[in-house]
C-alpha cells in the first residue's frame, strides 16, 4: 500500500483519537501543575496542588481512607478470585461437557451495568423487605439479618463481595483458557510417576498458570483502583454510610464537580495524576516481574 493512501486510511481514526483521547490525557497532567481560579488558569504551581492533597482538609482525612478502601477492594477481590475462582476454573476444566454452559452462567453478571448491579443488591439487601434478610430470618438466622449497607462496618465488604460476584466469570474464563495451554503430557507424566491429582496441580499446573494469575491480578488492580460506578450506586458520591464506601475516584469526582473550591481543577487534577501514577506504577512493576517469570518458565 502506498504511503499516502495509507495515511488517508488512518486519518479519520487518528483525528478522533487525537482530539478525544490523546489531547485530554496530555492536558490532564498539565492541569495539575498550574494554579487555578475557577476555570481560569494562573501561573505555574509546581507541586503545590499535590501538596494540597496531603495538607488540606478534607483530603487529609478522606484521601487515606479512600485509598485504603481501594487497596482492600483490590486485595479482597484478588484473594477470592485466585482461590475460589481458580478452583472453579480447574474443576470446570475436567468437565468438558458442562464447561461451556457453566462459564456462560458465571459470566452473566459481568455484562450487567455496575449501576444496575449496585441498585439490584441494594434492593435485595434492604433490611425491611429485602429477600436476603427475609430468608435469613425464616431459616432461623435472625442474628445474621443485619442492615448490611447501613452499617459502616459491613458496607465496604458488601461492595467488595458484590464486585467479586459480578467479576468472577472473567478470571474463570481466563484461567480456563490458560489451563488449555498446559501440556497434558506434563501432568500425565507426573501421574504415571505416581503423583496424585493434588501434587500434579500444585507442582506442575499451578506454576504454569502464574502468568495468567499475574495478568488477572494486574487487571484487577487497575479495575480496583478505578472503581467508581459500583460504589456510586451503593453509597452515592460521598460513600455512605459515613464514608465507609468512599473510593479515590469518588473523592476525585466530588473535588472536581461538587466541592465548589476555587482551585478545584488544580487539586482534582493532582488527585487524578496521583491515581494514574499509582495505577501505572503498580501495573508496570507487576508486569515486569511477570515478564521475568515468564521468560524463566519458557526458557
Amino acid at each position: 500500500m502506498r504511503r499516502r493512501t495509507g495515511l488517508v486510511f488512518v486519518a479519520p481514526a487518528l483525528a478522533l483519537f487525537a482530539v478525544f483521547v490523546l489531547y485530554p490525557m496530555v492536558t490532564a497532567f498539565s492541569y495539575a501543575f498550574f494554579h487555578w481560579q475557577g476555570t481560569s488558569r494562573g501561573g505555574f504551581a509546581g507541586v503545590e496542588n499535590f501538596a494540597t492533597l496531603f495538607t488540606r482538609a478534607p483530603f487529609t482525612t478522606d484521601l487515606p481512607q479512600a485509598l485504603l478502601h481501594n487497596v482492600l477492594f483490590f486485595v479482597g477481590t484478588m484473594l477470592i478470585q485466585n482461590t475460589f475462582g481458580l478452583t472453579i476454573a480447574y474443576l470446570l476444566y475436567s468437565r468438558p461437557r458442562s464447561r461451556r454452559v457453566l462459564q456462560t452462567l458465571y459470566a452473566m453478571p459481568y455484562l450487567v451495568s455496575p449501576i444496575v448491579i449496585g441498585y439490584l443488591w441494594t434492593l435485595l439487601l434492604s433490611p425491611t423487605f429485602g429477600p436476603v434478610n427475609t430468608l435469613l430470618t425464616r431459616i432461623g438466622l435472625d442474628s445474621w439479618a443485619l442492615p448490611w449497607l447501613g452499617d459502616p462496618k459491613t458496607a465496604l465488604w458488601v461492595v467488595i463481595l458484590v464486585s467479586v460476584w459480578q467479576w468472577i466469570g472473567f478470571p474463570v474464563l481466563l484461567y480456563g483458557a490458560a489451563l488449555g495451554g498446559v501440556p497434558e503430557e506434563l501432568t500425565e507424566a507426573a501421574r504415571v510417576d505416581g503423583a496424585t491429582n493434588r501434587q500434579a496441580f500444585f507442582k506442575i499446573t499451578l506454576p504454569l498458570l502464574v502468568p495468567a494469575i499475574g495478568t488477572v491480578s494486574v487487571l484487577t488492580f487497575i479495575f480496583a483502583m478505578e472503581a467508581f460506578a459500583l460504589p456510586y450506586a451503593f453509597g452515592g458520591s460521598t460513600g455512605n454510610p459515613a464514608g465507609s464506601t468512599d473510593f479515590v475516584s469518588l473523592l476525585f469526582y466530588r473535588t472536581a464537580f461538587d466541592s465548589g473550591a476555587t482551585d478545584a481543577i488544580g487539586s482534582s487534577s493532582a488527585l487524578a495524576t496521583l491515581l494514574f501514577l499509582i495505577i501505572f506504577g503498580g501495573a508496570y512493576a507487576a508486569t515486569s516481574v511477570l515478564r521475568r517469570h515468564e521468560r524463566r518458565i519458557t526458557a
Binding site: Y23, T27, A28, T39, I222, I265
Partner: peptide, 20 residues
C-alpha cells in the same frame, strides 16, 4: 501511538474532556 491508548485510563481525563 494507537496501542498506547490501551493503557490510558481515559476516565481520569474527565476534567480536560469536560472543558474540551
Amino acid at each position: 501511538l494507537f496501542l498506547s491508548g490501551l493503557m490510558l485510563p481515559i476516565h481520569l481525563a474527565i476534567l480536560p474532556i469536560f472543558y474540551l
